[in-house]
Design a protein around this nucleic acid. Sequence first.
DNA 1: CTGAAAGCGCTTACAG
DNA 2: CTGAAAGCGCTTACAG
Lengths: 364, 364
Amino acid sequence: MCGLNAFKQVEEYLVAKRRSVTIKEVAELAGVSQMTVSRVLNRAETVRQETRTRVQSAIQELNYRPNLMARHLAGGRTRLTGLLHDGAHSSELSELIVCALQSCRDSGQQLILEQIGPVEPMSPDMIDEAVSAIAAAGLDGLIVPPHLANQSRLIDRLSELPLTLVVLGGTRADERFARISHHDRAGGFELTSLLVRNGHKRIGFVADQSEGESEQDRLAGYRDALMHHNIPFEDKLIATAEVSLRGGVDAGRALIGHSDRPTAIIGATDKLAAGVVSAAHLEGLKVPFDLSVVGFGDTEAAGAVWPQLTTIRRPLSRMVELAVDYLAKSGFPDDVDGAELVTPQHLNINTIDLIERDSVAASG
Amino acid sequence: MCGLNAFKQVEEYLVAKRRSVTIKEVAELAGVSQMTVSRVLNRAETVRQETRTRVQSAIQELNYRPNLMARHLAGGRTRLTGLLHDGAHSSELSELIVCALQSCRDSGQQLILEQIGPVEPMSPDMIDEAVSAIAAAGLDGLIVPPHLANQSRLIDRLSELPLTLVVLGGTRADERFARISHHDRAGGFELTSLLVRNGHKRIGFVADQSEGESEQDRLAGYRDALMHHNIPFEDKLIATAEVSLRGGVDAGRALIGHSDRPTAIIGATDKLAAGVVSAAHLEGLKVPFDLSVVGFGDTEAAGAVWPQLTTIRRPLSRMVELAVDYLAKSGFPDDVDGAELVTPQHLNINTIDLIERDSVAASG
DNA sequence: CTGAAAGCGCTTACAG
DNA sequence: CTGAAAGCGCTTACAG
């Protein structure tokens, strides 16, 4: 009841004044100075817990949002956090941005989208130009999404900038930047084991020819699983392809083509797997009855083919959230749920999120 | 070399940032007050020509750029602009957000994402709750994306809030809010005509059962085109489906099933069309040789099936940009390129962007 | 036609 | 751990 009344009052007040809630009002409601509210907003550790809590409830009750303009003007150093993207719109990019926006707001950072591309492959000149633009933006931190984590020249250049770099995805720790990885190798193991449990012994794999660390790790996980289940590894069950639908179709046809064809195929990405499904259709095979197909990523591609793909979801939201947090606090916390701190600069998320849909059936 | 250059640029930038030219310096150089400089900047007619000229040369000499942050801060409150979304990540959402973020920054607005859903269908309670949350956010404006434009209860509730509402997509002008529509009917006409030009006479249409205005308009365009080309309209060539891959598959099978089957099928959305492609595969028909298929939207679904779909791209970036602009200026400009001002509150974009891919072949 | 003052909403720098 | 003051760069509202 009380909450409802306060709610109503705030609303009426806002309508009447036609302006938004300011730090002053929050301070008044919490019974502290503006300074203290500002400290809470900026994550200063010097505020007593009790005071902090009081301020936070005031913020919530009034639905206060700091005015970015004022912040920028006063501070001269609102932290600008960049999120790099390549201009290709996708469900992954929307997940990344939505979550980054939310996390940045929570931690008082301002999100700036920085675009590179979308030309593929990226030329050295293009990279240098983009990096110059990023340098000129005066960012405090920059987040590189999984999709661009393999661009070594780009990462090299970005590492030289006077900003904190966080790379999502990939595998190895690198002291030039912070990395948040997820357990691709275990994912590959899991997906392969699922197929083995369904009786499959001849399992094909469509690998990414660009040899990104993540994609290579998925393949390594596949080999781990074969070994674990005493199934011999065969070169001819591996095909490489450019990550595109066409690449998946071609690689799928190649794998299906020969006489001793696989009964199941893993795509290193959903897009490749979607291509494999189409290849199966073209060759007259029913999925999943004649051929099981699984992918990686839980992207839109996984839900756009029939049957919809069993796949492994990447914890993108979690990763950006952790990245923004890292930038806010200049380091990872010691204890992150479901994640392991490999080095102070390298956090690995080790939960696996298997999404089972309709593209797997028992063999034979 | 390049790295060194990047460093140098940053250094220069930082120095520049610390002492960026302000209105005060311009005023001093021109020998006037800040106020006069401000008047010149804001095109006030009350400045004497001679003074104006002096100020302008000072501006040029110092290469002065007004600080947008300060401008917006002083000029009034910064406007909070909401973008509604349903939590379902997609390429469309990423396009919407990327563009909204950019436009808001340009016009000094602050973008707030407001989520409703993602439960489907949305219950009245859920809608009311979401609308309350939106009310409490104290937004000045709210943009409703095409995907949610059909939710009449939601729109009704939002119309009652003390904020400026802009609905993207849909068809009819409504005085309770501003609308930016695109030419769905002409799009339906165009797509149908493309098929007719390819010799198709029996053209199926998978309609959206939810009867959204846009989707209905596409069907109307289809009928227009048939009439224009003297092809009789047949009820049995129309199927309705829930907008999902499964819906498309089922509707596709129904249309393909009967003896006198269509040689081409239009999906009211790409997702439905993707389902139709899968249905064709399941029934042993080759796309596009046995069946041509086209969709609407140029979404990820259009690129995730094989063959990739010919479709019509919606001008989403353009629409959000215009929406943000409308909110900034409280109205549409008189002359927008490629668009028509139906009423002062209703702008219709009449360009059609046909994306031809590989899902259409000549009939017979 | 022009200017001095107040203030937008926030932060930095200092003081307790 | 918390607060009072000054000021970021500009505009509005008032005064000449």
